[in-house]
Simulated assay, not measured.
Amino acid sequence: MIERVIDKRSHDLGGGFTVGRLLPFHSLRMVGPFVFFDHMGPVDFAPGIPRALDVRPHPHIGLSTVTYLYDGALTHRDSLGFHQEIRPGEVNWMVAGSGITHSERLEYARAHGARMHGIQAWVALPVEDEETDPAFYHHEGADLPTWEEQGVRGRLIAGAAEGMRAAVKVHSPQFYMHWEMASGAARVLSAEYSERAIYLAAGSAEIAGHRLRAGQMALLETGRDVLVRAEVSATLMVLGGEPIGERFLMWNFVSSSRERLEQAAEDWRQQRMTLPVGDEQEFIPLPENQK
Rank of each mutant, 00 (worst) to 15 (best):
M1K: 04
M1R: 01
E3A: 09
E3R: 13
R4F: 07
V5R: 13
I6W: 12
I6D: 08
K8A: 15
K8C: 14
D12E: 08
L13A: 06
G15H: 10
G16K: 11
T18L: 11
T18S: 14
P24H: 02
H26Y: 09
M30V: 09
M30P: 00
M30G: 00
F34A: 10
F34K: 09
F34N: 08
V35R: 00
F37G: 01
H39Q: 13
R51F: 11
A52Q: 06
L53H: 10
H60R: 05
Y70M: 13
Y70A: 06
L74Q: 06
H76V: 11
D78C: 10
D78N: 10
G81V: 11
H83S: 14
E85W: 00
P88Q: 03
G89K: 00
G89Y: 04
V91G: 06
V95S: 08
A96E: 01
I100N: 08
I100A: 05
I100P: 11
R105M: 12
R110H: 09
H117L: 10
G118T: 04
P126V: 09
E131Y: 06
E131S: 12
P134A: 07
H139K: 03
P145H: 03
Q150R: 15
Q150D: 15
R155I: 14
R155M: 15
G159I: 10
G159H: 07
A160G: 02
A160P: 00
M164R: 14
A167C: 06
K169Y: 05
V170S: 05
V170D: 02
H171V: 05
H171R: 01
S172E: 13
W179A: 14
E180S: 14
R187G: 04
R187E: 14
A191S: 14
A191G: 04
A191E: 06
A191L: 09
E192Y: 09
Y193D: 00
S194R: 12
R196M: 03
A197M: 05
L200N: 06
L200S: 03
H210L: 12
H210T: 15
H210V: 15
L212Q: 12
L212I: 15
G215T: 05
M217S: 07
V226D: 01
L227Y: 06
V232Q: 11
V232C: 03
A234I: 05
L239G: 07
G240C: 03
F248H: 15
F248Y: 15
N252A: 03
V254C: 00
S257D: 14
R258T: 13
L261Q: 05
A265T: 08
D267P: 01
D267Y: 09
W268G: 03
R269M: 10
R272S: 07
T274H: 06
L275R: 08
G278F: 12
D279V: 05
D279F: 00
Q281E: 08
Q281L: 02
F283V: 12
P285S: 09
E288Q: 08
N289F: 05
